[in-house]
Design a protein around this nucleic acid. Structure first.
Length: 256
DNA sequence: CACTCGCCGCGACTTACATCA
DNA sequence: ACTGATGTAAGTCGCGGCGAG
C-alpha cells in the first residue's frame, strides 16, 4: 500500500445528514455488460485466455480497448502462482467455468513500474498503454484500469487533504468570530467611558485585495465577491490560516 | 453548416476478492 | 480457525469529445 492509513481513512462525511449519496444505488447484479449492446466488443472473445505477451495486445487495443469487458482480468502470469506475500500477478481466469470473479494481484515489480509511469504522466495514450502492457506482460485493459484507479486514489487523497484544510479554516473562522464578538462587547462597554476610547487601537484589521483594492470588513452588507476571489475558495481561505493551501489549490490569496 | 450516430476514454460508483490484524 | 477492516482490481453506468456520414 502506497498511501498511509491516515491518508485514506478520513471519512468524507460532512456531518450528520450530510454524507454524500452514491451516484448509483442500484443492486449491481453481475449482468451482461451494456458494452456488448453498445457494440464495443467487436470480435472479441471475452472468455479468451490471456494471449502470449506481445501478440494479441495490439489486436485487442485496435478493437477498441475492450472497455469494460467481463472476465478481462485473465492476465498473464509473471511470477506464477498466487504466493501469499509477493503475489505475482496471480492467475485470474474464468476457465474453471464457475463464473466466479477471481482477483488479480499485481506483483510488486509491476506496481512499481506502473507507479513510476504514473509519476511521469497520469494518463496514457494508446501507444504508451500498449507498450507498458507489453513490458509488464499485462493486458492493455489492465494497465488502463490501473491508471483509472490510481487517478481516483489520487483525487480521493487530495479531497481528504482539502477537507481537513477546510475544517481547519472553519475552526479558525469560528475562533475569529468569537474574538470579534468579545471585541464588540468590550467596545460597547467602553462606550460608557469615552475617555478610554482614545487609547484604543483600531479594533479590526482591514484586509485589501491587491487585484480589486476592495477592503473589508464593511458595515454594509457585503456584495458577492468578485470572480477572482471565488475561483479557488480553498486557496483564498488559506489566507485565514498561517498555512499554505493544499497542493492542488492555488491562486488568489488575499494578502493582509 | 448543423445534425445525428457510433466509438472511445474517462470519472464516479460499485462489487468481489485478497490480505492482514 | 474465524472475522471484520482495509486495499484494490475490475465491472458498470453515464457523459462528453470526436470523426464520419
Amino acid at each position: 500500500m502506497m498511501v498511509g492509513k491516515e491518508d485514506v481513512g478520513l471519512s468524507l462525511s460532512l456531518g450528520p445528514g450530510l454524507s454524500i449519496p452514491p451516484r448509483h444505488h442500484f443492486l449491481a447484479m453481475p449482468h451482461w455488460p451494456t458494452d456488448l449492446a453498445r457494440g464495443r466488443l467487436r470480435g472479441i472473445d471475452v472468455n479468451r485466455p490471456p494471449p502470449p505477451a506481445g501478440d494479441a495486445d495490439e489486436e485487442e487495443d485496435a478493437a477498441g480497448a475492450a472497455s469494460s469487458s467481463p472476465n478481462s482480468a485473465a492476465s498473464s502470469v509473471l511470477s506464477g502462482g498466487a504466493g501469499k506475500r509477493d503475489h505475482g500477478a496471480s492467475y485470474c481466469s474464468d476457465e474453471d467455468g464457475d463464473g466466479s470473479r477471481k482477483k488479480l494481484r499485481l506483483s510488486k515489480d509491476q506496481s512499481a513500474v506502473l507507479e513510476e509511469s504514473f509519476k511521469e504522466h497520469n494518463t496514457l495514450n494508446p501507444k504508451q498503454k500498449v507498450a507498458l502492457a507489453k513490458k509488464l506482460r499485462l493486458r492493455p485493459r489492465q494497465v488502463e484500469v490501473w491508471f483509472q484507479n490510481r487517478r481516483a486514489r489520487t483525487k480521493l487523497k487530495q479531497t481528504e487533504v482539502d477537507c481537513s484544510f477546510l475544517k481547519r479554516c472553519c475552526e479558525s473562522l469560528t475562533e475569529e468570530n468569537r474574538r470579534l464578538h468579545r471585541e464588540v462587547q468590550e467596545l460597547r462597554a467602553l462606550k460608557l467611558s469615552p475617555q478610554m476610547f482614545m487609547h484604543m487601537t483600531p479594533p479590526t484589521t482591514l484586509t485589501m485585495c491587491p487585484s480589486c483594492e476592495r477592503t473589508s470588513p464593511s458595515s454594509a452588507p457585503p456584495p458577492p465577491p468578485p470572480l477572482h476571489h471565488r475561483r479557488r475558495p480553498i486557496a483564498a481561505l488559506a489566507s485565514l490560516l498561517d498555512a499554505p493551501p493544499p497542493r492542488s489549490s492555488s491562486l488568489c490569496i488575499i494578502e493582509e
